[in-house]
Design a protein around this nucleic acid. Structure first.
Lengths: 196, 196, 196, 196
DNA sequence: CATGAATGAGAGTTCATTCAT
DNA sequence: GATGAATGAACTCTCATTCAT
């Protein structure tokens, strides 16, 4: 597969991502994908052996993108609060960008396949989020910005709220105000002591 | 439809609930349902016009059950902390009882159908949870058990964590320890002042 | 599956047999079968899970039919030469009845699937033919009708000629005269001594 | 087409022959051929207009090879029994060399296409075999080596056994011992008188 | 009321063949 | 000459829904 093919593969992945974002995992058919990509039925199979493989590669791409964004953020000089704010801002964007949120598709996928839960990508993504958050919190505690007794538990708590918000955004709807309110509430929990 | 028929309809709903719980919404076929119910394919259509309607009635039943449980709880004499603890205990049970948790199916359903978000049952359930929590918190604040500035925001926060935990339980796995830790953490946020 | 269904299954098997007879194994599609049976695409799958299974059941039916014919023949009083003549007459019919000869389909099938050769039905059929022939020859030798030193080898020889004729009938064509000539030649080989 | 192209065409034919030998006719895909030849998909079409034409040219090549072998054999001084033994030895090799036996593919091919049977190559090959055998038998009768009343019928008989053995070798399996036994049995039929 | 055989649209997938490069 | 990405018709198989019994 030459360079040109690689571009097309990337194009298909990005287009498929939109489709999965809009329709979830189980409801997406090959026709949806080939129509969106404006390629032939057979053409898709030149790049991906099955719908399952296609979805997994979309997830991998997603992960790589997130990793890049995180690396960028961490390479800049900033206070812990700033970085945490940046992280939450990114999450907020993802929550609200209804048409750009793969969470439902990901849940469906990892639910329908009987993958060992320990190895799945969604779990890795969650754990990475927890790790980042707890490290930020620890740093914040170290320099006096935050107060927190168990940074991992708090990291998990924030991630669970974010997951809850993402799912809610795609199913029952959630306003920007609610997202702001929730994220702010969680930061306040950390800096609480100082505010008193 | 006579009394006997009503019983059969109820039986189908309860059996279907188990199936949706196990397999989600999109993956469930009529065969799954009729096999589980041990009725004929055609028989199912005497009671429900389509799979979609069947699922919606399962959700309605679910809602009714929850309402009953809540009514029971509220009719007894108890401190606010007790009631809140009971509520969270119920939620914990639902989170961990992997095979008894309709959340994934519900997400899939409300995601695949283009229902107006305001009217959907999942939203109503969420809002009811928020209402209950905020009322409990308000009551707790009134009698000095809790400290809280915005009970609705906190109620939402707890509900988002619970939603996040439910989804996580079905997709990436979550330990009982983590559930306990998270629920405890949220209660501590409320009673925080007193602990200092 | 009730009695009526059993009849339909039988009807599909017989119709499929004709199709396989006409077109071989690999070239036959489900569409060919459902068109010939005048049933729906899905209807076929109520009775058979795949083309492979369908063909195997056709073969089983074929075998059962042959067994019946053989049993009939052996239950009647007759000289060995008569029975042998009957057997060869049956074979001749099968060879020449171009549109009623599954051999090519059977060859294709057992060639394309990597079944252990020892267990395949075609082999069993061949071995049964050899056994029948050698028993007839032995009986003929015992009562002085035939002369033969190695009845199994001769039985195999006759079966190989029959197989060769069957294949030839479906591919390069073979006249009735040639079939008669060949079968006669083989019987003469057995009774040779007496003719001298 | 230059000399170089001619070589490539020859190479493709020989490689394709191996593939058809292994997999039959209908099961072979263009991918199988181009992979085996290590050429491009389009490249194949520079030399052959379709898979059908490719197979027919493989058969033609096969025929030419056989002709050469026969010419070689007949150009040498030898007794008729020697030549017959050589012919049968060649046939035995072809029967047992499972992976070098085009018979199944040939049967499939001439069966699936609706060629007039009189003109097909497989028939020509069979008829050539019969002609060669009957000529050898006639010569053997002339010089007293053999006894035979109808050399053409016997020639056909030997060819039918050989065809039967070839098919059996690829489908139900046949041991070298059986092949030897069968070929010997047929020669003994010819020299029978002398043995008495 | 209840059955389950039957339907047919549509899903995923394969592959001979073409054609711009 | 040679490539291999692209096509699209045709394949196998599934399943919600219907309807004669």
């Amino acid at each position: 597969m030459g360079e040109k093919s690689e571009q097309k593969k990337q194009f298909i992945l990005e287009t498929a991502r939109k489709v999965f974002t809009e329709k979830g995992y189980k409801s997406v058919t090959m026709k949806d994908i080939v129509d969106a990509c404006e390629i032939s039925r057979g053409g898709l199979y030149l790049y991906f052996d099955s719908t399952e493989q296609l979805f997994m590669e979309v997830l991998k791409m997603e992960q790589a993108d997130t990793d890049d964004t995180l690396e960028d953020a961490l390479s800049k000089e900033a206070t812990v609060t700033d970085i945490l704010a940046l992280f939450l801002k990114e999450q907020k964007k993802e929550i609200l960008r209804g048409t750009n949120n793969l969470s439902i598709a990901t849940y469906e996928f990892f639910f329908s396949k009987k993958f060992p839960k320990k190895e799945n990508i969604a779990r890795k993504k969650f754990e990475l989020g927890v790790k980042l958050l707890s490290e930020m919190i620890d740093a914040g505690v170290a320099n006096g910005e935050f107060f927190c007794e168990d940074s991992v538990a708090v990291g998990k708590n924030i991630m669970f709220v974010i997951e809850g918000l993402k799912v809610a955004a795609r199913t029952i709807g959630v306003s920007e105000k609610t997202v702001d309110e929730q994220l702010l509430y969680m930061i306040q929990g950390l800096v609480y002591e100082e505010e008193e």
